[in-house]
Computed example of a mutant assay.
Amino acid sequence: MKQPQLPHWLIDTVYIVAGILFCGFALKSFLVPNQFFDGGVTGISLLLHELYHFNIAYVIVICNIPFILMGAFQVNKSFAIKTFIAVIGLGLCLSFVPYPQITSDKLLVSIFGGAFMGIGVGLAIRGGCALDGIEVLALYTGRRISFTISEIILGINIIIFLIAAIELGLPTALYSILTYYTASRTINFVIEGLEEYTGVTIISSESTQVKEQLVMSLGRGITVFKGERGFLKESFDISQPVDIVFTIVTRLEVRRLRNLVHDIDPKAFIFTSTIKEAAGGVLKRKPRH
């Protein structure tokens, strides 16, 4: 019997609420009391809070509004509405939830403040919104200039940390860079999860045996592309048809797959690529208890 599944809107809501609570915890218990910063819109908000003593809850909401409006055109209206509600929720959380200050140790603040911020932002992204609108700006700008989204985000953050270094001292800026790095790595971890997948492409003259072993021994689903192999320098005009086999495995299974294929054909050409997200098909997942 099929187990009943929770509706998507409920799962998204749980992710967003949890993300708001984690972000509020990171800000009020770690970053704000110790004058630390993050990157993106959150970093701009924290910088304005420290320089001009504006209420951090109001500043975060106001700073995100232009990017929310931009998101309505660059992504879609549903994303913009979700993000607006989430940002308002974060502002309310910062205003009314009595988070305690956890520590004043700079290293602990930079690492755990960034980690909790990354968890919050990552959970919000999984819920279909953004608690930091800097990526919307990067998406908008990237369509008009030759820089990539990552380069644009990096450039904006460099400006934020330079201002922080000038106004509040180099040590604070350096610790804040560590905070941003920790947050960005944690965001990737939350979004992609523990079980990253690897796409494997195999070109072999023994493709029939390779296909059989992948399906029967590894229990993997495969996709077969029809191609040609050959085209060497000394025999460019000579080629023969070949089945190009593609499959997806977990990182822990890559070595076993390579060994299996090389036992069949030591000259097989194998290359891998990182898969950010995979769902459906024949994917082997870790059992959940």
Rank of each mutant, 00 (worst) to 15 (best):
G127L: 06
G199K: 11
I244Q: 04
S110A: 13
V242D: 02
L137M: 13
A164V: 10
E151N: 11
L47Y: 10
K211Q: 11
P66K: 07
K233I: 00
F67D: 02
T182M: 11
G199V: 01
G219I: 00
I152W: 08
L252R: 07
G230A: 02
I62Y: 08
H49R: 02
G230K: 01
A130Q: 05
I20V: 15
P7S: 12
R229P: 00
F67W: 11
R288A: 14
K211G: 03
C23A: 14
S273V: 05
V190Q: 03
F246R: 00
C23T: 15
Q213L: 10
K211L: 07
G89P: 08
T179M: 08
T198G: 02
A57M: 06
P287H: 12
T172L: 09
I152M: 14
F236S: 00
T208N: 12
R143P: 01
I65P: 05
L257T: 03
N64L: 12
A278E: 07
Q209Y: 03
S273Q: 07
Q240A: 15
Y52S: 04
G230F: 08
V14M: 15
F231W: 13
E234N: 15
Y15R: 08
R143Y: 04
I119W: 04
E196V: 09
C129Q: 14
I11P: 08
R126Q: 10
F37Q: 14
E192F: 15
A86Y: 08
R258A: 02
T223I: 12
F25C: 04
R143F: 01
L139R: 12
E50I: 03
Y15Q: 11
D12G: 01
